[in-house]
Design a protein around this nucleic acid. Sequence first.
DNA 1: CGTTATCTTGACTGAAATCAATCCCGGTGG
DNA 2: CCACCGGGATTGATTTCAGTCAAGATAACG
Lengths: 251, 251
Amino acid sequence: MDSVQGVVAKTDCNDCPLKDKPHLAPFNHLGGPGIEQYKVGELRLTAGTNILMEGLKSPHLYTLIEGVAFRHKGLSDGRRQILNYAFPGDLVGLQGSLLGEMQHSIDALSDVALCVFDRSCLFDMFEKSPAAAYEITWRGAKDETILDENLLSVGRRSAQERAAYLLALLYQRAKLVGLAPKNRLNFPLTQLHIADTLGLSIVHTNRTLKVLSTKKVIQWQDRGCTILNPDALLEISGWEGLDSLTPRARL
Amino acid sequence: MDSVQGVVAKTDCNDCPLKDKPHLAPFNHLGGPGIEQYKVGELRLTAGTNILMEGLKSPHLYTLIEGVAFRHKGLSDGRRQILNYAFPGDLVGLQGSLLGEMQHSIDALSDVALCVFDRSCLFDMFEKSPAAAYEITWRGAKDETILDENLLSVGRRSAQERAAYLLALLYQRAKLVGLAPKNRLNFPLTQLHIADTLGLSIVHTNRTLKVLSTKKVIQWQDRGCTILNPDALLEISGWEGLDSLTPRARL
DNA sequence: CGTTATCTTGACTGAAATCAATCCCGGTGG
DNA sequence: CCACCGGGATTGATTTCAGTCAAGATAACG
């Protein structure tokens, strides 16, 4: 377990830190054997590393166990757009597994730990467990919901509204998985990441965040962001927040 | 069959104009009974009508048979962002069926005909046909791919690049289903729709399209757009085009 | 202790929004 | 047949927002 990076020995799913999270319930009572039969290893990567690269065909599908990652796409001249973030419990690389080739890249934002599954487990799961298949599809739809809101944001919200929306979203998602202790986003998000998510230049992003700071809504210090007033963020952004409702229809 | 609008009698799926399209193959050899057992009716709506509204819980899932529709979300003050378009053969309302409540609206761009299924057919299909379940999930992933590119576009491409990308995308998708005869987009797309898709004002959209017209790449006339030079559109946008590759891995 | 990544700030430029008219054309009703 | 109307497309003038350029400040890091 000393290796900082690379595939390490397979540990028991019963020790999984996510074991008791409601997220994964459907995978635990798969018809017959549990999810662990599909697990082929673990992967630990340091912050800033690439997990999956656009254009490549990965034989693997991942679950993010620890840390935060982000999906992004780039243009040939270097411009980059961050599409979405992944938090512990999220599936990583599903699109690539389904479509055969990655259409975007995924990088580790913080140090991350991933659980590695063979791509073929997807087909198996669809064959053997309707509940698991449904769960996967449901998650995909959920993901698309966030993407929709991101697109609305980048397309139609002002810089300040956009920034407020993004921070509110990250805050809510981080909080759900314990990554926002004392309301501080507990991962190394830089203003460049924010800029590339909002579709703004880094300079303008900085100025926009400054306005939010002046309003005492957030605080940026020591390379990190603390949310001082979550409600004000929602107010400013005009976003409803993650639907607390939506208890998934059971299959 | 005279009614211009509303649910009409159920016709046989064997008469479906989409029957022979490769799109639907997986649904045709569902384990046992075909897709038609789930069909509960048909819906015809005129251009500009709302199909599904944000916030509502629809008991139905649709397949678009004829015409073009678009998904969109709005802010409280009226700003609107078009997220994606639906062409014949596409599933409409899947997100709502999965998540219980629509997170976006869907409107008819042209006159449309939709095939109506009961929402519960989803659960049934997952139970009874892994191939159909996989197909649905695969389509969701494909959709998300387009959404990703749209987000990259709105976030990082210049106005002209964006417009070129959008028109190239619509052209390619329309062509696939025969809606681009003589390279003319055969549906009533207005510059306002384009503006709301690109995240630009309508005035600036007009000026941007004018530049493309001047370059003889497109032609806007009689309330419609003709693609004069598809390759130039791709060139300008820096977009690769819909992956001609990606023959889906069969379940 | 220098090096590098990140954050900040100021000055200037440029892209896109906004405001305000027109224009064009198909449809409507007198 | 023709005046009127309304949605859509254009165009010009002006303002505003955001990008770019340039330079420091700050602070983690080897």
